Simulated assay, not measured.
Amino acid sequence: GYQLAQSLIERGHKVSFITNNYQGHRSGLRVMANGMKMYYLNQLPVLQGDVAFLSFFHCLPLVKQILVREQIDIVHGHQSTSVLSHCVMMAAKSLGLKTVFTEHSLYSYNDFTGIHLNKLIKWSFRDLDAAICVSHACKDNFVLRAKVDPHQTFTIPNAVDSNRFTPDPSIREAEIKKSGNPDTINIVFISRLQYRKGVDLLLEIIPKVVAQFENVNFIIGGDGSGMADLKALVEKHNLYNRIEILGGLPHTKVRDVLCRGHIFLNTSLTESFCIAILEAACCGLLVVSTDVGGVPEVLPKHMAYLTKPNVKSILRQLARAIINVKKLPCDTFYNELAEIYNWR
C-alpha cells in the first residue's frame, strides 16, 4: 500500500490511510513521506483482537470524521476479512463517496468460514463501484463469492519494489566460499510454516533431496505450527550441517537471505498471487513452485519450474532445477521483472 500511495502522490493526488493501531503503541495521526497521512485507530481496551460487532460501532464515528476532514473522494479497501475495511467502505457509501475494493486471497465456498464470509461480502459489497483482484484465478473466485458484476472487476497483479529486491552475486559467492564446496547449491524456503503453505510437503521433500544431492543445502525462514516438526526432522536425520533454520524474518532481511540461494522453493497448497516467488526471481533465484491458484500467472516460463502439489512432482522439478540452475542466466531476471512489475 505504501508504494502505491507514493506513486499516486507523485501524480498529484492526496492519500490518507486508515488502519488499526500498530502493535498497541502506535496510535493517532502520523504524517509520512510526501505528506501521506496515517490514521491509527485505537481498539477498545477490553478486546483481544478484532471483534467485528464491537469494532464496527466503535470505529464508525471516527471513520466518518476522518473522511469529512480529509475531503476524501474515493475510498479503497483491502481484504474481505478486514472488519475495518468493511466499516470504512460503509461509512464512505453513507457519505456518497466512490468505493473500490482489492481482494488478495482465495477463499473456499463450502466450509464454515467461507460460507459465513461469503454471505457477509455479498451484503457489504452490494453497491461497490469497482473491484480489483491480483490474478485471474482470484477474480474468478471473488466474482463467484461476492456476486459482483464481472465487468466491474479488474485483474491488476501485485507489484514489487524492485529497488529493495536486487540481485547480489557476491553474497552467494561468499556463501559458497564459506561452505568449501564450489558446487554447493542453496535452496531457500521462506514462508509461514503452516499446512496451507505446504509445510507437510516440505518435510517429506527435504530428506529425499539431501540424500540424493550431497551438494544441496536448505535455508528455511519463517515460523508457525510446523516449526517443531521441522526441528524434529533435522534432529532425526542429523541434518544440522545441511539445513539452516532462521525462524521468523523481518521483511527488511528477506532480500539478503534470498541472495544467499540459487533456488527458491514454494510448496503452497493455495495462492492467489504469491509475491514471494516474484521477490525471489528479482533477486536472481530460479523458482520451483506448486502451480496452484494464480501462481502460473506470476512469472515468465523460463524463470519458474511449476509442479503439482505432491511430493513426486516437486522432487522431479527440484532435481531438474538443481541440474540446470548454474547454466541459466538467473541474474538477468531482475531487469526483465523490473519492467513488467512496476508501481508506476
Rank of each mutant, 00 (worst) to 15 (best):
120 L>G: 02
11 R>N: 13
289 S>M: 06
119 K>Q: 11
213 F>Y: 03
37 K>Q: 11
279 E>H: 06
232 A>Y: 07
315 L>K: 02
28 G>Q: 07
213 F>E: 10
141 N>F: 03
111 D>E: 07
246 L>R: 11
307 T>F: 08
269 L>Q: 06
33 A>I: 03
84 L>S: 05
206 I>D: 01
145 R>E: 05
250 P>R: 03
8 L>Q: 13
171 I>F: 12
19 T>M: 15
147 K>S: 08
225 S>R: 09
149 D>N: 15
20 N>R: 01
179 S>R: 15
182 P>H: 12
318 L>T: 04
200 D>G: 02
73 D>T: 12
272 S>D: 06
105 S>E: 01
7 S>C: 06
154 F>R: 14
198 G>R: 07
255 R>M: 06
15 V>P: 15
156 I>Q: 06
85 S>M: 05
127 D>I: 01
12 G>E: 04
20 N>I: 01
306 L>S: 12
133 C>T: 15
82 S>A: 08
7 S>T: 13
259 C>M: 10
44 L>Q: 04
33 A>M: 10
116 H>Q: 08
41 L>C: 06
66 I>Q: 00
276 A>E: 06
6 Q>A: 08
299 L>T: 07
232 A>R: 14
108 S>F: 04
341 Y>P: 12
59 C>H: 03
296 P>T: 15
118 N>H: 08
217 N>W: 02
330 C>R: 10
29 L>M: 09
201 L>C: 04
144 L>N: 07
273 F>P: 14
62 L>N: 03
164 R>Q: 14
203 L>K: 05
93 K>H: 14
258 L>A: 08
101 F>P: 11
56 F>G: 06
105 S>K: 11
323 I>N: 09
97 L>D: 12
54 L>F: 07
174 A>W: 05
211 A>F: 04
68 V>D: 05
49 G>F: 01
284 G>L: 12
299 L>D: 05
139 K>S: 08
331 D>P: 12
26 R>M: 13
35 G>C: 08
331 D>K: 10
169 P>H: 13
113 T>E: 07
78 H>D: 12
299 L>A: 10
35 G>I: 02
40 Y>V: 00
237 H>M: 08
170 S>P: 04
316 R>Q: 14
69 R>L: 13
68 V>E: 05
278 L>W: 11
129 D>A: 14
4 L>R: 02
325 V>G: 15
259 C>K: 10
221 G>K: 04
162 S>Q: 11
170 S>V: 02
16 S>W: 03
268 S>R: 02
80 S>R: 10
316 R>K: 14
15 V>T: 12
207 P>N: 13
142 F>W: 05
70 E>Y: 11
6 Q>P: 01
339 E>T: 04
39 Y>G: 04
209 V>K: 08
18 I>S: 11
241 N>P: 00
155 T>M: 05
2 Y>K: 02
98 K>R: 15
317 Q>H: 10
134 V>T: 03
192 R>W: 00
244 E>L: 07
343 W>I: 13
69 R>P: 14
199 V>L: 01
312 K>V: 14
76 H>N: 10
334 Y>I: 00
